[in-house]
């Protein structure tokens, strides 16, 4: 059994439909076995077409910043150079999901809401979403553990952006509230 139930969501960019209609819950699970039953039968992120996302969130939290669990929060963002899609993307996404369902963040685990992987022509992104952007101790602990669990080089930095900041600016201008 997992500590909580999780839900996998899939987003496919169909421009003729509203954003919310393009986002669909695939299924929920609450055991390790059911996680693998799902994972072993869906496409890897590197095989999705550009514009698609997967999101894995605690059951009851929708993968959008407007959800009450997300709106005061933010995300640790890992931006991948284009050439890394075929080398690292799938491994990094799997390791992200294993951190989530395995509750790898210890006492700050409840502050972790979920994660999103975006497949994009200009570079894929993986983001870990947390509940409270102003809880510095929590955000920094989660960021350090996450960076280490992904095996990112000490020379690499990842930034944390509050959703409130990202929502009002294009992503390239959203400031980093924290970095590790």
């Amino acid at each position: 059994p997992l500590m909580t139930s999780w839900a996998l969501w899939f987003f496919k960019n169909e421009r003729s439909r509203a954003w919310r209609e393009n986002l669909q819950m695939v299924t929920r699970f609450d055991t390790v076995e059911d996680f693998w039953a799902l994972y072993n039968n869906i496409k890897l992120p590197s095989k999705l077409s550009p514009g698609c996302d997967y999101a894995l969130f605690r059951d009851g939290i929708e993968p959008m910043w407007e959800d009450s669990s997300n709106k005061r929060g933010g995300r640790w963002l890992v931006s991948l150079a284009k050439q890394l899609r075929h080398l690292d993307l799938d491994r990094l996404w799997l390791d992200t999901m294993l951190c989530l369902i395995g509750e790898g963040f210890g006492d700050y685990g409840p502050d972790v809401c979920g994660a999103v992987v975006n497949i994009r022509t200009k570079g894929d992104k993986i983001a870990l979403w947390t509940r409270e952007a102003d809880s510095q101790a929590s955000v920094m602990h989660i960021g350090r553990v996450y960076k280490e669990r992904l095996g990112l080089s000490m020379k690499a930095t990842i930034g944390y952006q509050a959703h409130a900041d990202t929502a009002t600016k294009s992503n390239s201008l959203a400031r980093n509230k924290f970095v590790v």
Binding site: M3, E33, F35, Y39, N40, D95, I101, G102, E103, G104
Partner: peptide, 20 residues
């Protein structure tokens, strides 16, 4: 228990046959 599982523990389940 706290149900904190590390990566290697979780990976061990990936290809186990389901029990019926």
């Amino acid at each position: 228990g706290k149900k904190q599982y590390d990566r290697e523990f979780l990976l061990d389940f990936q290809f186990l046959p389901a029990c019926v």
